[in-house]
Amino acid sequence: MTIDTLTASITIPAPAQVVFAVLADPANHVAIDGTGWVRESLDGALLTTPGQVFRMAMYRNNPNFPDGNYEMANQVQVFDPPHAISWKPGRDIAGDGTLQFGEWIWRYDLDQITPSETTVTLTYDWSAVPPPVREHIPFPPFAPDHLDNSLAHLAAIVKGR
């Protein structure tokens, strides 16, 4: 059996609206990221609707990125405050302004269990990635504990608010 998703959860001592607000601001994604690849939000806009695209500067020591720097354009798939938010990463591969989105998704589901506690589940899902793409990109492209690290970072940011 092939596993095509990774999931991790954490309970954060805060209302779901507060946690969702942190996730809906791409400027926070640098601090949330557990890989060190996310560098900065390039748009500066809050996420507000499905279909919205937000761009992030990235860095990864990888042969596909000769100087390590690249940009990701993420398209919001789910925007359901304060319950769920997700996005699909993509890139302008040809350099002509046309975005091509991968078939993998980052998703956060928020379940407010008390007025001051929210369980957050982070899912990385690559089940829709076709075989030709899987030949060139290993999934997941990070260690499985990345999700736990990201959730711990999210909890620290929320605690600081």
Results as ranks from 00 to 15, higher is better:
Thr2Ala: 08
Ile3Phe: 09
Asp4Pro: 02
Asp4Trp: 02
Leu6Ala: 00
Thr7Gln: 04
Thr7Met: 04
Thr7Gly: 00
Ala8Asn: 10
Ser9Val: 02
Ser9Phe: 01
Ser9Thr: 08
Thr11Asn: 05
Ile12Gly: 03
Ile12Asn: 04
Ile12Leu: 05
Ala14Gln: 05
Pro15His: 09
Ala16Ser: 12
Val18Leu: 11
Phe20Lys: 04
Phe20Trp: 09
Ala21Cys: 10
Val22Asp: 03
Ala24Glu: 05
Asp25Ile: 13
Pro26Lys: 13
Pro26Ala: 12
Ala27Tyr: 05
Ala27Phe: 09
Asn28Thr: 11
Asn28Pro: 05
His29Met: 14
Val30Phe: 11
Ile32His: 01
Gly34Lys: 09
Thr35Cys: 04
Gly36Pro: 04
Gly36Ala: 04
Gly36Trp: 07
Trp37Thr: 02
Trp37Ala: 02
Trp37Tyr: 13
Val38Met: 07
Val38Cys: 08
Val38Glu: 02
Arg39Ala: 14
Arg39Met: 15
Arg39Cys: 15
Glu40Ile: 07
Glu40Phe: 09
Glu40Ala: 15
Gly44Asp: 06
Leu46Glu: 10
Leu46Gly: 08
Leu47Gly: 01
Leu47Lys: 01
Leu47Tyr: 06
Thr48Trp: 07
Pro50Asn: 08
Val53Leu: 07
Phe54His: 11
Phe54Ala: 10
Phe54Trp: 03
Phe54Lys: 03
Arg55Cys: 10
Met56Gly: 02
Met56Val: 12
Ala57Thr: 06
Ala57Leu: 05
Tyr59Arg: 04
Asn62Leu: 12
Asn62Val: 14
Pro63Asn: 06
Asn64Tyr: 13
Asn64Ala: 15
Phe65Leu: 08
Phe65Pro: 02
Phe65Thr: 09
Pro66Arg: 03
Asp67Arg: 06
Asn69Gln: 12
Asn69Val: 13
Tyr70Trp: 13
Ala73Leu: 12
Val76His: 03
Val76Arg: 01
Val76Ala: 04
Gln77Pro: 02
Phe79Gly: 01
Pro81Ser: 09
His83Met: 12
Trp87Leu: 03
Trp87Thr: 00
Trp87Ala: 03
Lys88Pro: 01
Pro89Ala: 11
Gly90Leu: 05
Gly90Asp: 04
Asp92Ala: 11
Asp92Leu: 03
Ile93Gln: 06
Gly95Phe: 14
Gly95Ile: 03
Gly95Glu: 08
Gly95Ala: 12
Asp96Pro: 11
Asp96Phe: 06
Gly97Glu: 10
Gly102Gln: 11
Gly102Trp: 12
Trp104Gly: 00
Trp104His: 07
Trp106His: 14
Arg107Phe: 08
Arg107Leu: 10
Arg107Gly: 06
Tyr108Asn: 01
Asp109Asn: 15
Asp111Met: 03
Gln112His: 07
Gln112Tyr: 12
Thr114Trp: 08
Thr114Ala: 14
Thr114Arg: 11
Pro115Phe: 10
Pro115Asp: 10
Pro115Gln: 10
Pro115Gly: 09
Ser116Lys: 08
Ser116Trp: 08
Glu117Gln: 13
Thr119Cys: 12
Thr119Asp: 06
Val120Arg: 00
Thr121Gln: 02
Thr121His: 00
Leu122Arg: 00
Trp126His: 04
Ser127Leu: 04
Ser127Cys: 03
Ser127Val: 01
Ala128Trp: 00
Ala128Pro: 00
Ala128Leu: 03
Val129Arg: 00
Pro130Thr: 07
Pro131Glu: 11
Pro132Phe: 14
Val133Ile: 14
Val133Tyr: 05
Arg134Ile: 14
Glu135Asn: 08
Glu135Ala: 14
Pro138Lys: 07
Pro138Asn: 07
